[in-house]
Amino acid sequence: MTDLIPIRTTDMPAEMGVLLHDYPRDAWAANPHFAKSTRQWMRAHEKFRVLADHLHDQTQGFLDRNHDPDDFADHLGRYGTALVRNLHGHHHFEDRTFFPELSAVDPRFDAGLEILEKDHEALDRVLDDFSHIGSRVIKLVQLDKAAAREEAGLLITQTGAIRAFLDRHLGDEEDLAVPVILHHALRG
């Protein structure tokens, strides 16, 4: 199943990082153009990372028999749904509003934005697989706890994939978008 997880393994083209040299990550917070909306956008990214890590850890705890199956199923339903819905909404906003805004002020980075949009499409497939497997685990907890643990073995692969995907994608997204925002004093 891991062979089917479409995580991009190539780096962003070097020319996509041209502004990152002038606006390094460790100086963003001190930049006067690092607006509240950009901080909120990055906080959402951090929440996605934390939630994906949490779901992975909870699934591993279930596999290790450290969690009550019913509690795990409830937890998976609540937090898994939150992750999927919020990521879909976040990426919809980026594809429809945020990326076009960046492209309008600096089309040099359109190739990078296209890569990020393709990442969104691939992440949608990963999230759909996670949702299907998660739903099966939740149903199996009520029917056959041993089968639920077997299915959770597939789920741990998905949560690991989501974590890896988010680490790769969100870092690239921030390294591309924030320097453009700071350079052009957007969103402030």
Rank of each mutant, 00 (worst) to 15 (best):
Thr2Gly: 14
Asp3Gly: 15
Asp3Arg: 14
Leu4Pro: 00
Ile5Leu: 10
Ile5Gly: 07
Ile5Lys: 06
Arg8Gln: 01
Arg8Phe: 05
Thr10Glu: 12
Ala14Gly: 01
Glu15Cys: 11
Met16Ala: 10
Gly17Trp: 05
Val18Leu: 11
Leu19Lys: 02
Pro24Lys: 13
Arg25His: 08
Ala29His: 04
Ala30Glu: 13
Asn31Ala: 13
His33Asp: 11
Lys36Ala: 11
Ser37Ile: 14
Thr38Tyr: 03
Thr38Gln: 02
Gln40Val: 11
Trp41Met: 02
Met42Arg: 12
Arg49Glu: 09
Arg49Trp: 10
Ala52Gln: 08
Ala52Pro: 02
Leu55Ala: 04
Arg65Trp: 00
Asp70Gly: 13
Ala73Thr: 03
Asp74Pro: 05
Asp74Ser: 09
Gly77Lys: 02
Leu87Ala: 06
His88Ser: 05
His88Gln: 10
His90Trp: 03
Phe93Cys: 05
Phe93Val: 14
Phe99Met: 09
Asp106Pro: 06
Pro107Lys: 09
Arg108Cys: 00
Ala111Ser: 11
Ala111Trp: 01
Ile115Pro: 06
Asp119Met: 03
His120Met: 03
His120Glu: 08
Ala122Thr: 02
Ala122Ile: 00
Asp124Asn: 15
Arg125Thr: 10
Val126Phe: 09
Phe130Gly: 02
His132Met: 11
Ile133Pro: 01
Gly134Thr: 02
Gly134His: 02
Gly134Pro: 01
Val137Ser: 08
Lys139Arg: 15
Lys139Phe: 14
Leu140Ala: 09
Gln142Val: 02
Gln142Met: 14
Lys145Thr: 05
Ala146Asp: 15
Ala147His: 15
Ala148Met: 06
Arg149Val: 00
Ile156Tyr: 08
Ile156Ser: 15
Thr157Ile: 00
Thr157Asp: 05
Thr159Ile: 06
Gly160Trp: 08
Ala161Arg: 13
Phe165Ser: 10
His169Pro: 01
Leu170Asn: 06
Gly171Tyr: 12
Asp172Lys: 03
Glu173Trp: 12
Glu174Asn: 12
Leu176Gly: 03
Ala177Trp: 05
Ala177Phe: 08
Val180His: 07
Ile181Lys: 02
Leu182Pro: 15
His184Asn: 12
Leu186Glu: 01
